[in-house]
């Protein structure tokens, strides 16, 4: 172990000076999301890249990538001299459960009696399949611009929940992808160490999913109301409800 700890009996002046920077940079992105999409499409013709518009005032549009090409595209974005998105700031999961979309189709049936055609409304329920989504916010520390937002979608929410890990491209995804695996259940392929991050290893479910059902470990509380009261009803006894009135004056 000797030699690892050279005793640096240096004074502060011998330590090379720290320096300061004064730059005020502009946070503009050189390319818009559309331009990046177009460039990616020419570079990766086989890849499916969809521009997902953001209707809100932030107007940061994102790019939905297909899973197979995602690592290559990510590597390209990181090394591309125009973008140089070397910094992956935020990685997060989003759960989109199955959604029933009721559409009403109106068909006009001609009246056999010769009157005006009758309009028949027909309700159609279309089940939009849900998915689990991983969202990556990329910035460039070298060129100081961003963000470029990437999205990856799983095929469904039950069995095909695999996405390629981008940890080999950006180490910053390491803990955050583990967290998504933990809380959403997306399995990241080629992640170096995919374990639960926040919940304990024996935990079964994925608590951040929208359809997660909390275990019925209700703890009695005096102010239960709303959803908690509904849950509490199974546990309440008359004696525990009586205290709401308080001591009689």
């Amino acid at each position: 172990m000797s030699g690892r700890h050279p005793l640096l009996w240096t004074s502060r002046s011998q330590h090379p000076p720290l320096h300061f920077t004064f730059t005020h940079s502009t946070p503009t992105l050189l390319e818009t999301a559309e331009q990046i999409r177009d460039r990616l499409v020419t570079r990766f013709p086989a890849a499916q890249i969809v521009l997902v518009p953001n209707p809100g005032p932030a107007a940061e549009h994102s790019l939905l990538l297909d899973a197979t090409h995602a690592p290559d595209i990510a590597r390209f974005l990181r090394d591309d001299p125009v973008l140089r998105l070397d910094y992956c700031s935020n990685v997060t999961g989003v759960d989109w459960p199955d959604k029933d979309i009721t559409g009403i189709t109106k068909t006009s049936v001609p009246d056999p009696a010769g009157g005006p055609p009758k309009i028949v409304e027909q309700k159609t329920v279309r089940r939009q399949p849900g998915c689990l989504e991983a969202v990556y916010h990329l910035y460039s520390m070298a060129l100081k611009h961003g963000p470029v937002i990437l999205r990856l979608c799983t095929a469904n929410r039950i069995d095909a929940v695999t996405l390629p890990s981008l940890t080999p491209v950006w180490r910053a995804c390491d803990f955050q992808e583990r967290e998504i695996f933990d809380l959403y259940g997306i399995v990241f392929e080629h992640h170096p160490d995919l374990r639960r991050l926040l919940m304990w290893d024996e935990f079964k479910d994925h608590p951040m999913r929208k359809d997660y059902v909390e275990p019925d470990d209700y703890e009695w509380e005096p102010t239960a109301h709303g959803a908690v009261l509904e849950r509490a009803k199974a546990h309440l006894t008359p004696a525990t409800t009586a205290i709401k009135e308080g001591p009689k004056p």
Partner: peptide, 9 residues
């Protein structure tokens, strides 16, 4: 529970 629950009185 009971001591930390404050009623309106």
């Amino acid at each position: 529970f009971l001591d930390l629950y404050l009623n309106r009185e």
